[in-house]
């Protein structure tokens, strides 16, 4: 009996349920509970993704988790920023250079990069939510002249939780991105904003007829930010958010990630607020 994958991508015939062998090449401590892994395929394979898509990463013998791709695109290695929150993510963040790691992906629908061209872009990130937005930011930087004004509003718990600090400075200086950062708690040495990320929206001078918003962070944060943006007149179809639910298969077969009629893994994780708003407003849906 010949052994075959149990699930395939019907479009390419590629296995969809068997992870590809990869190796961790670099591990960087980004925040007290977050690490960034640079991952390389054991055998060079074509791998392309769009900003906002995710991979399923396997810590062998422990389990598998959905982890957004944190880019930047097109440099040969996969970059994943992972927060240590459970057994699988803990094992992933403990992987050292040259340790094996399994990768399935990329999966899902990412950020509307084409739609956003010619528009102003408001990017709002909360905590680790900056990770799936990072490839979108690099995409914008690579085609900066095709975008209008770009704002990054970023909320972290504490100053030491701020991800990609040195890069953010570059984005601000060289990329002409208007960066505003706030933290929930800070010591006396923090010169910046303190408070929730919605408070930063007052820094954005938004022309609602030509703005696209991209949101990623805790669901409650996204709900409040989306509500504030809507109040300012931005259409619900112009607000995009990256949703999170339990994912096991990433191909719409296991049923876990459903939110109403949506399979977050297959139909998302990026959706318009037009689609998600009514579903997010129902508790425990």
């Amino acid at each position: 009996m010949s052994l075959k994958p149990t699930a395939i991508d019907a479009r390419s015939g590629a296995p969809a349920d068997v992870p590809k062998l990869c190796y961790v090449r670099k591990r960087r401590h980004d925040a007290p509970d977050a690490w960034t892994l640079e991952i390389e395929f054991a055998e060079s394979v074509p791998f392309s993704y769009t900003p906002g898509q995710f991979n399923m990463l396997t810590a062998f013998g422990v389990g598998e988790s959905a982890i957004s791709i944190s880019g930047p695109p097109g440099q040969g290695r996969l970059i994943h920023t992972i927060r240590d929150v459970g057994p699988v993510s803990h094992a992933l963040t403990r992987l050292a250079p040259n340790d094996p790691v399994g990768v399935r992906g990329p999966f899902g629908v990412g950020w509307p990069m084409a739609t956003a061209e010619g528009q102003d872009v408001v990017i709002v990130a909360g905590g680790l939510g900056l990770a799936p937005l990072r490839p979108a930011i690099y995409h914008i930087l690579s085609r900066r002249e095709h975008f209008g004004d770009v704002w990054l509003l970023y909320g972290a718990r504490r100053p030491e939780d701020i991800l990609y600090r040195s890069e953010i400075e570059e984005w601000r200086k060289k990329g002409h991105i208007d960066v505003n950062i706030t933290v929930d708690h800070a010591g006396m040495d923090w010169p910046g904003h303190v408070g929730v990320v919605t408070g930063l929206l007052s820094h954005v001078n938004m022309d609602v007829s030509r703005t696209i918003a991209m949101l990623c962070g805790p669901e409650v944060m996204m709900r409040f930010v989306a509500a504030s943006l809507t109040e300012k007149g931005l259409g619900v179809g112009r607000i995009f958010l990256s949703m999170e639910r339990n994912m096991k298969c990433a191909i719409g077969h296991c049923g876990h990630c459903q939110l109403g009629p949506a399979f977050i893994c297959r139909d998302g994780p990026v959706f318009t607020f037009e689609r998600m708003g009514p579903l997010m407003s129902v508790k425990e849906l």
Binding site: M1, L3, T6, P15, D17, V18, P19, L21, F60, G102
Partner: peptide, 19 residues
């Protein structure tokens, strides 16, 4: 769905499906 084993430095991953 699949199994994997270490062989020296290598890790071999094999699909388990097919019937």
């Amino acid at each position: 769905l699949w199994r994997a084993r270490r062989e020296g430095e290598n890790l071999i991953i094999e699909a388990s499906g097919g019937n």
